[in-house]
Simulated assay, not measured.
Amino acid sequence: MSLPKRMKLRTFAVLFCIITFTTLLFTYTFRDPSLYFLKHAFRLSDNFFTKGPCGCRQCITELDDSLWFAEHFNQSIHPLMTKENSVLSDETFKWWQWLQSERQPANFSEVVEELFQVIPNDPLYMDASPERCRTCAVVGNSGNLKGSHYGKLIDSNEFILRMNQAPTAGFEEDVGSRTTHHLMYPESAIDLDNNTHLVLIPFKILDLQWIISALTKGTIKYTYVPVMSRIKANKDKVLIYSPTFFKYVYESWLDGHGRYPSTGFLSLMLAIHICDEVSVFGFGSDKYGNWHHYWEENLLAGAFRQTGVHDADYEYNITLALADKHKIQMFNGS
């Protein structure tokens, strides 16, 4: 046999062996759990050099690494309400109205129409380019922030979400000084600076009427308790938490535990759906097991009380599970 023919046969044999080995490798890798590490190693190696759907090393929306997360997470439900997505299903509307019942509620559609004449209709769906890496800090109000010295770390994030009272003046070293989004409802409202987004969590139609009033005429002074009739906030930066998303958080993430989610958990879920990397501060008790706010002197004064409204233990366990799956990073403070 001539030399060229022998070389061709040898080349063919080598190619045949490579193809056969590769086929067997992939067949058994996907069938045999003991070889799963090979597939996982290849994926990790690839991810080390490519950044996936965003510009971060690891993005929250990478669902393939956690079946548990993929079963809960639904990116198709927008967390913020617009005029276009404000229409609620009958089931959602009934559930939402049940949260804080109103005797004579106003017409929802008419209130929404008026609302988006006062505030913008273009909430925060911003840069979606592959180069983006949106880092977010969700800052709770736990006393474990006292003495933590997290201030600079918190302020280094692009988005910083706070909730309810959450003072920063005098606490900057531990909690930071910047706020990009402040979540509240009428009964927990505070004044904001001109650069901060007010994110209203509405529990009823009256809450939507209140934000219209608080930004204009100031006629609503009472819901089920006295509320601020006017609020200092940039009306061009007001956002509305969607009742549809609210219900999704309650059903998909909390599995119906409690009457409805806490502001802290709703804030965390907002961050998970709009951010690429999420760091969580000020959740849970302090190192002594006390539940109180970082601005309180009495460690027993501001506990996350057992009212039956929120299931604090279940919410905290879900938060810990998100950290365990490397979807968020938790900072436990002092």
Rank of each mutant, 00 (worst) to 15 (best):
M1Y: 10
R6S: 13
K8P: 05
L9D: 12
T11V: 13
F12K: 15
F16H: 12
F21G: 11
T29D: 10
F30C: 11
D32N: 14
P33C: 07
L35F: 14
D46T: 15
F49T: 11
G55E: 01
C59V: 02
D65V: 09
W68C: 04
F69R: 05
N74Y: 09
I77S: 04
E91T: 14
E91C: 07
Q97F: 03
A106C: 09
S109M: 06
E113Q: 12
E113I: 05
L115A: 01
T135E: 14
V138P: 02
N141W: 03
G147C: 00
G151N: 01
G151M: 06
S156I: 03
F159D: 09
P167D: 06
A169C: 09
A169G: 07
F171Q: 05
E172Q: 12
E173W: 04
R178N: 14
T179H: 04
T179F: 00
M184I: 02
E187V: 11
S188K: 15
D193K: 01
D193L: 06
T196R: 02
V199P: 04
P202W: 00
K204R: 15
S213K: 06
S213Q: 08
A214V: 05
T219L: 11
I220F: 10
K221Y: 12
M228K: 15
P243C: 00
E251C: 03
S252T: 04
W253S: 04
F265V: 00
L266G: 03
L268H: 03
E277T: 10
F283N: 02
S285V: 10
K287D: 10
W295G: 04
E296W: 01
G302M: 02
F304C: 05
F304K: 05
G308T: 04
D313Q: 12
I328G: 00
I328P: 01
Q329E: 11
Q329F: 09
N332M: 14
N332S: 13
